[in-house]
Design a protein around this nucleic acid. Structure first.
Lengths: 334, 334
DNA sequence: CTGTTAGCGCATTCAC
DNA sequence: GTGAATGCGCTAACAG
């Protein structure tokens, strides 16, 4: 099993056939100027010798790697899994391969990965930035060295970049509307840490949706969690302790909701009777649950990723297309 | 944004410094024979000119890409997501990058992806084969052209290959033991299609575990589903219609169990009272459920993948290490 | 239609 | 300690 056969090269085919390497190269690439007979002979010999093009040589020579890179905070989160799968589909349809890295929300690691991808001379990068990423110089660096970057989901709030994101407010509006329509008087938001832009977006959307529905806005109805299970349980504790306890809760994401629901059950509350939930979806399991949350706000990770990939390939093909900022509406699904 | 700066090369550094390119190359690689002063000067100039090594050239020259490839049936299934994440961790610790492809259980697509990876001259491949893959010649081809392949989870049943897999029987034993200990008399297996090796493995494990517990084995208690939701519902129908209806069900995987549970509820059965479930885990949500299955049989995808990656790197580093066939015990978790 | 030549950027062997 | 020369495998400009 350890006998390594060095694969045949164009040169060897040429020698066997007593023709020049360039002819062989052209024949293999179906260059129109090469005679049919020659082309056939070359291909036959290539077959016989088990010729396989050395892509590393081609990449080097062509200054093109037919590879895109994807860098995400995590490769194991369902939200990103859907994204990854779609990206692979788009890329493989374009005959590109996909390099992957996860930053784990560590800016240093993120930077390191980007550097590696850059040195690999990938043809483009798809990215969702980490929660703690603040230094955005890398974008200009990559773009100016000819590597297009398209962001999705977690995108920098810069103009003149290419990005695909979700408008959190539409789903929030629908969620608040739905709660109000069902007669809920106290609607709470269990939000993530203030440091996250994603939290700020949710808060703004919540305030506007509440106002739009003519609801009273009370600061105490905006509860913050650090997104850990303990944090979520504490959030439920504080909700439970409130005098005018909310009957409807919109939460940061599914993980939070699942913890809140569990905590609520433990306190003797009956789901979808004493208390109702809607969350920003990131963990698809509602269809299987006996007593699922009332609804979820979908952000369509697969669709976002697909669109981002399509934009990336547009930019790879044609380097001077205009910047694109796409916003998909989030939607309440019940 | 479209001004593309061609990155500096070693040659340019050499010219600026009026020294030879080879010296620059050596200095950048901290070659001991280069004087400290020269090395410093070179590095400083490299910094100034924003030099970045052209990895495509290095890959080509060194016949090594510092890249491993991962090919899986699907990139969006949670089971594989965990695997991917672990692989990325191992690889990035070794300063390797990771190329990904999904076969979608299509043998042609799988073959195409493998070919691409081979032409990319990846240094090694991690693979879980598709459900319909029968032609295994590619293994020998890859190995003989110097690309080590390590399989995990869905592995070919060949000797002399490197693989990491899960022993389904240990968890099955524990599951049947647990049911018997709780007094269940009729324990059914809802299995996948006969065509899958994974189904055969489960069946063998089930038969042996039942026998080991002195239980009667009835053919009708082995129900087959095509794994679709409809198929799963039909499976529940047939269970419901049985005269000696099973009170305990071990099923192919979580998706099956979730459908069965839903169907059981719809028929008025009370979970964990009238009917109990254990399944091979592939979708982690039990901890969040109000009324979860009694248990799950864990196969530890992350651990399998990590081990497979470690073996791959061993083989990449040292091409003549012995073949390794690792089997991790599956375990019942309640 | 085909051959000759050159060069991509780098590491490395051989000189000095 | 440093420089000159070579070649990895391939494509493409130029020449016929």
């Amino acid at each position: 099993m350890n006998k390594v056969n060095k694969p045949a090269t164009i040169k060897e085919i040429a020698k066997k056939l007593k023709i020049s390497p360039s002819t062989v190269s052209r024949a293999l690439n179906d260059h129109p100027s090469i005679g049919l007979v020659t082309t056939m002979r070359v291909k036959k010999m290539a077959e016989e010798l088990n010729y396989e093009p050395n892509q590393t040589a081609i990449f080097f020579k062509q200054r093109k790697t037919f590879t895109i890179a994807v860098i995400l905070p995590s490769l194991s989160e369902p939200f990103f899994s859907f994204a990854i799968s779609e990206i692979e589909n788009v890329a493989s349809a374009q005959r590109y391969t996909v390099l992957m890295g996860q930053s784990l929300d560590d800016p240093d690691r993120e930077e390191q990965i980007l550097k590696t991808f850059k040195n690999h001379r990938v043809d483009g990068i798809l990215m969702s930035i980490g929660k703690k990423t603040t230094n955005l110089e890398f974008i200009e660096k990559l773009e100016s060295s000819g590597i297009p970057v398209v962001f999705f989901d977690c995108v920098p709030s810069l103009p003149n970049i290419n990005k695909v994101q979700s408008d959190l407010s539409t789903g929030m509006n629908e969620a608040v509307d739905a709660f109000v329509a069902r007669g809920h008087k106290v609607i709470a938001l269990v939000n993530g840490p203030k440091t996250l832009p994603a939290s700020e977006d949710r808060k703004v959307a919540y305030l506007s949706a509440m106002k739009r529905n003519g609801m009273d806005i009370l600061e105490k109805n905006i509860i913050e969690t650090d997104l850990s299970t303990e944090g979520n349980e504490k959030a439920m504790d504080s909700i439970f302790a409130m005098s005018e306890r909310p009957s409807a809760i919109i939460s940061f994401n599914d993980f939070v909701t699942l913890d809140l629901m569990k905590a609520a059950r433990n306190k003797g509350l009956v789901l979808n009777q004493d208390i109702f939930f809607i969350s920003y979806a990131n963990y698809p399991l509602w269809q299987y649950m006996e007593n699922p949350p009332m609804g979820r706000i979908e952000q369509f990770p697969g669709m976002q990723a697909r669109k981002a990939a399509e934009i990336l390939f547009e930019r790879i093909e044609n380097s001077d297309v205009a910047d694109q900022q796409i916003v998909f509406k989030s939607r309440l699904v019940m």
